[in-house]
């Protein structure tokens, strides 16, 4: 008996070989299935924009990014390196008693609004490669560090209130930030399990279009990539968008310039 691999590949070759290349499609516009049997890569027309008209990090690009992020209910903040630690400290939510118990998250309100600096602090997890200056001012916050070598368990991650990461690139037109798992962005679980994700994006990392980002990420395609556009959401009930499901229910994007 032939193994499945051999048989499938042979079926495909048979299918491609047996296709009668003279039979046209029914063709309302003749666009259907006219693939020939040649095996050389065919020429793909790429008339689409490979880059936007605005430079990465320009004001125009940032304006679009902010508009898109806000549209999809992300919280956007602009700051400078000097003010960043204070801002981060303010964004870490109050410790939630409920959130310490796995599975008992309050189903009714994902209210994790920033609190005033005087309220009791929660715990935050950061990837080990994060700029230490960022977390330096988080007085009263318990900062836990995660790395591939010394990872927190799922239960431990579920107990922290927030995660702070850097990013690899952001796409303005789609309101997307991309993490590539490097040391300042951390393991995928780290930016997933905590209920609040604070993502720090340098303005020079913001490109206008998707192709610009793909080109950049293509330099290291084997890295695990997470494209994030707003907090988790669902439209499964009557196509009505609800923000905040399994992924972080709150996404803060901090633009650093």
């Amino acid at each position: 008996m032939t193994d499945a691999r051999t048989e499938i590949l042979s079926r495909i070759r048979g299918a491609l070989g047996s296709a009668d290349s003279s039979a046209g499609a029914a063709g309302t516009t003749g666009a259907a299935g006219t693939a020939g049997v040649t095996r050389a890569p065919s020429v793909v027309p790429r008339e689409y924009r490979s880059a936007g008209e605005h430079a990465p990090g320009s004001d125009a690009v940032l304006e679009v990014l902010i508009d898109r992020l806000v549209d999809y209910k992300a919280e956007v903040h602009r700051t400078t390196p000097k003010d960043l630690p204070r801002l981060l400290a303010r964004l870490i939510p109050q410790r939630s008693a409920e959130r310490q118990v796995v599975g008992s998250s309050d189903y009714r309100s994902p209210d994790v609004l920033p609190t005033t600096p005087s309220t009791p602090r929660g715990a935050v997890v950061v990837p080990h490669g994060i700029d230490q200056a960022w977390v330096s001012a988080m007085g009263g916050v318990e900062v836990r560090t995660d790395s591939r070598e010394a990872p927190l368990s799922a239960a431990e991650l579920d107990e922290v209130d927030a995660v702070v990461t850097a990013a690899r690139v952001a796409v303005a037109e789609t309101g997307t930030i991309v993490l590539d798992g490097e040391a300042d962005q951390g393991r995928r679980a780290v930016s997933l399990v905590p209920d609040v994700h604070v993502c720090v994006v340098r303005t020079d990392q913001v490109v206008q279009t998707v192709p610009e980002a793909v080109r950049l990420l293509g330099a290291d395609p084997e890295r695990p990539l997470t494209w994030i556009s707003g907090p988790s959401a669902t439209s499964d009930i009557e196509l009505e968008r609800v923000e905040g499901v399994h992924g972080p229910r709150t996404l803060h994007v901090v633009l650093l310039s």
């Binding site: 898109r68 999809y72 796409v171 037109e173 789609t174 309101g175 997307t176 995928r188 395609p221 084997e222 890295r223 695990p224 990539l225 997470t226 494209w227 994030i228 556009s229 707003g230 907090p231 988790s232 959401a233 992924g247």
Partner: peptide, 11 residues
């Protein structure tokens, strides 16, 4: 949507 909330890629 302009982009869906999450896209994961792994190799």
């Amino acid at each position: 949507e302009r982009m869906n909330p999450y896209t994961s890629m792994w190799t």
